[in-house]
Write a protein that binds this DNA or RNA. Sequence first.
DNA 1: GCCAACGTTGGC
DNA 2: GCCAACGTTGGC
Length: 163
Amino acid sequence: MAKRYWLMKCEPSAYSISDLARDGETSWEGVRNFQARNLMRDEMSLGDPVLFYASNADPSGVSGLATITRAGYPDTFAWKQGHKYFDAGSTPAAPIWFMVDVGFVEAFAATVPLATLKATKGLEDMKVVQKGSRLSVQPVTKQEYDIVVRLGRKTRKTVENTA
DNA sequence: GCCAACGTTGGC
DNA sequence: GCCAACGTTGGC
């Protein structure tokens, strides 16, 4: 299957690219949106590249790169009574929610802010730059992915050069 | 912290 | 099947 490219959002107060750098790998549980669920369950494959997006951050934007280390499997947190991701409707026999595992690839020295994404040619079709887009797992094109990676590494050079 | 935009739920 | 009410997301 052809490699696909993704953007995944997370609030840094919950989990940041630094946390991922420290852990190396993490499970991506707790997604409770059907569209995002379908993407994780059906479309993500091992090794797919991921833009790691920090939402509700200062600034919000892409803070680094990750990769899918395990394709979609049932979200076991949905079965844990009392857990914040518990959902009585989901059972091991008939799981409703799915998650993937994500591995650390690279942390940008500085976040590529949403404003920069919005202002960059070639990214105008990204879901994340569109008003009111709340989907926490989004497909991106290879072209979009490459542009964002370039922006992220440019940021790093700038920081290094001025350090 | 505010609030607009969105997805989901539930009454009818 | 419509749509109002509600809860949540997420930029600012």
